[in-house]
Design a protein around this nucleic acid. Sequence first.
DNA 1: GAGCGGCTCCCCCGTGCGGGGGAGGCTCGT
DNA 2: ACGAGCCTCCCCCGCACGGGGGAGCCGCTC
Lengths: 220, 220
Amino acid sequence: MPVTVLLVDDEPLVRAGLRAVLEAQPDIKVVGEAADGAAVIPLVRRLRPVVVAMDVRMPLLDGIEATRAVLRTVDAPPKIVVITTFENDEYVYEALRAGADGFLLKRARPAEIVHAVRLVAEGESLLFPASVRQLAARYGDDGGNRAARAVLERARLTEREADVLRLMTRGLSNAEIAARLVVGTETVKSHVSAVLAKLGARDRTQAVITAYESGFVAPG
Amino acid sequence: MPVTVLLVDDEPLVRAGLRAVLEAQPDIKVVGEAADGAAVIPLVRRLRPVVVAMDVRMPLLDGIEATRAVLRTVDAPPKIVVITTFENDEYVYEALRAGADGFLLKRARPAEIVHAVRLVAEGESLLFPASVRQLAARYGDDGGNRAARAVLERARLTEREADVLRLMTRGLSNAEIAARLVVGTETVKSHVSAVLAKLGARDRTQAVITAYESGFVAPG
DNA sequence: GAGCGGCTCCCCCGTGCGGGGGAGGCTCGT
DNA sequence: ACGAGCCTCCCCCGCACGGGGGAGCCGCTC
């Protein structure tokens, strides 16, 4: 009785790689592929995979939203392993909060990928160790919990804070942002501080980085 | 007489993907894999592949340097296809200048990847069209050449400056960068100033934005 | 060997930034 | 009518940042 897996990634190359790695195992069977999050739900309904291996960054519907959607609309939902290229705490906790069972880096070794799929199939959760280490390093000594809280409060940017962050990502200074929004610089400073706190960023540079890494803004 | 290919990428997953895609062709044979640029030269000497599919970003020796090294030290060198994740990568032109014969995006469809390998094997060059279009759109109307020049002249960052910029894009302060590079903070400040001047950035935040927008670094 | 570019380090100096407080007005929902 | 949340503005304060200089060392080229 094989572990059936649905692959969701917008890059055919990555899908091919996952397929090659997983199909090499006698107890794992790739039963389908999807190129974006929007296609996941009907495929899950039809194929009923045990595990869904899902990329974070995808067109139409990203991995986080797709995870939420699957868990909300499908009964007896599959286990979900979220896969991404870069270690990024925002993704990790967004994904786990959305209900994902595991988190994997694309640079993981094939054996680790296989191991992750088997583990979540058995009902275990899994965090690829490197991610946890990074989180702990970034937020101090008591690791996960505090980091989780910091990140969890992040998603709640107010409209004004989002405006400010958006202008920050365009390289504007506080004074310039103030002029653009027609408010005082002190107001901008308040918003900036709030943004930094919510993003767990130390300064505006880190905030901008998080904005790019989280997809709040996109290059190009 | 099959086209023999050496795969060079630090992610086993991508290697597996390329292998799956290419081995599906009767006339293409993957004869070896390497996980970093440093391992390429001995492998090329031993395996004598017709084509090397090489990632840009790799530990130890990146794809550009590895390309240069292969072309400089191996006689009757293989054709080299450089592969990267993101379009609009300033490395594209570095790669072609280094002597690469083709440029490919990881998100390319399998058929395109196969086509690229066959093409360079026959001595043709290839630029994946989407990249040229994006570059042209950004830098003006007359297409590739001017865009290439713009990119190359835009930021002739020295190696050290590139190191510093890379760490800036990870949110590090000058002191942290200094510690990481094992130099004084004054040195870092010098490099940072040089980077800001070359990028036309007012502060580190703008530099990081430029780094993202130009593809110097890419979000996950 | 003179020159040049890159890496390293040093000085001074102004200021934008971010933390820590607080406070008033506004629109909500209950 | 009341509190909650948001937006707005204010204070003080320390510090990292970035500009403008300069300087010595190395390896390269001419």
